[in-house]
Write a protein that binds this DNA or RNA. Structure first.
Ligand SMILES: [Mn+2]
Ligand SMILES: [Mn+2]
Ligand SMILES: [Mn+2]
Ligand SMILES: [Mn+2]
Lengths: 222, 222
DNA sequence: GTCTTTATTTAGGTAAGGCTAAATTAGTTT
DNA sequence: AAACTAATTTAGCCTTACCTAAATAAAGAC
């Protein structure tokens, strides 16, 4: 019954899930941009995904796609594998947090359930990946994600970094160098309305971050 | 320059290498049987592999294929990844020796050089996979393989099992249960010409093995 | 030397997943 | 209402990799 999906299908499902979860519509163009594929190709794929039985997406011409229940389960399964793999690559194989994404995006389509179960076990059933993103459990329930951006805080608020939403290696390496990782506590010291810069203090050390940085960091206020 | 090969191409190269190394010709039909693909499809693929630049195989109509130097390097690279992965799955993730092949055959096309290098390091640069097959080193040199079959021995010869050439799960599980693994020492006690059965002793324990078993076990005489 | 068998190739098809260029739709402006 | 624009779909094409059926070649049998 459960024939396995192609690489491409899995990446589409993941993209639809992610765009929707982030409050964007999974429109043809958004998907095309997200997946680096021509819009016309996205149309073709959405039609295919909608015409499977059971369908994985609901697709209405010119209205983008939403996941069906089947599609959402499939998406969560891929996301779980992706995040477990990222965690495994980081914790057990010494990959840095800017290297894990690309590797996981390949492996997520290749590993078996057995492999997934084993690394989950070896890691002690981790709940978050190296970027702080929550890992859906075996039952494919996605935990709540932190959704307050650091860029929205003002002095003298305090917060803990929960997750970093970025695939850009430069940004990730920059943040690592500054120790701005999930779990880090910080205080807002100043806000510059003209450019959106925030001055923050981490462990007493002050630094100024532009909004191109702060809008990718999601926090929990304390 | 080095665009990466498709899954299918890599499996063909591996199959051509393996058939040749085992003394078979990499003919259309042999490849078809080995890869579980229709002969006509093999013809098509060999033509494609031969028309790449640089070509990966030498192909003469109706005379099967041989690997070019480029093709052989590519084949050895895949075999190295495959065997390292099998070893890693077995040693680090607790896969049994009859489970590793299928998983490795998927992963071998997905892992990066970085991943390969890391597991090689974690494993301490292993020289043999769980079935006793040699792992080509980083320079892609394939060590000599044991090529004497247990089935050719006669009393009172003694030998050490070097490798087991089988993908059949039943056979592998049978051998594991009998502790007939690479490294095991044994003595030939009797040979039955009528059916080819060998009576062997392992650690003083006697057992009778049919030639369907003994012809898959390669040994080193002692 | 013709016949038959076996191995292999050719021909013609399918399905997935891409692409570009052209057409269409739905909103916005004027 | 007509025109413009942005988003999306259609049409037509490509490559990879597989399949079946039919044609052909090479090798062995008679
Ligand atoms: Mn992916
Ligand atoms: Mn992540
Ligand atoms: Mn493979
Ligand atoms: Mn092996």
């Amino acid at each position: 019954m459960k024939k396995k999906l192609s690489h491409a299908s899995e990446d589409y499902l993941k993209a639809i899930y992610t765009l929707s979860a982030d409050g964007f519509s999974a429109s043809t163009n958004n998907l095309a941009a997200h997946l680096n594929i021509a819009p016309a190709s996205v149309t073709g794929m959405l039609q295919r995904l909608a015409s499977l039985s059971p369908p994985l997406v609901n697709y209405r011409k010119r209205h983008g796609a939403t996941l069906t229940d089947t599609g959402e389960k499939a998406a969560l399964k891929v996301i779980r594998r992706h995040r477990l793999l990222e965690t495994y690559l980081h914790k057990s194989l010494g990959f840095s947090w800017d290297e894990v994404h690309a590797e996981a995006c390949e492996l997520e389509h290749a590993v078996s359930d057995r492999f997934e179960a084993r690394i989950d076990e070896v890691l002690g059933h981790p709940t978050h990946d190296p970027h702080g993103d929550p890992i859906p459990n075996l039952g494919l329930v996605m935990p709540q994600e932190a959704d307050i951006r650091l860029s929205t805080l003002r002095p003298p608020q305090k917060a803990i970094i929960q997750r970093v939403d970025a695939e850009d290696g430069k940004l990730l390496r920059y943040l690592e160098e500054k120790s701005l990782l999930p779990g880090t506590k910080l205080e807002i010291r100043a806000f510059s309305p003209i450019d959106g810069n925030l001055t923050i203090a981490v462990d007493g050390k002050k630094m100024v971050l532009g909004s191109a940085v702060t809008c990718h960091i999601f926090i929990e206020e304390i």
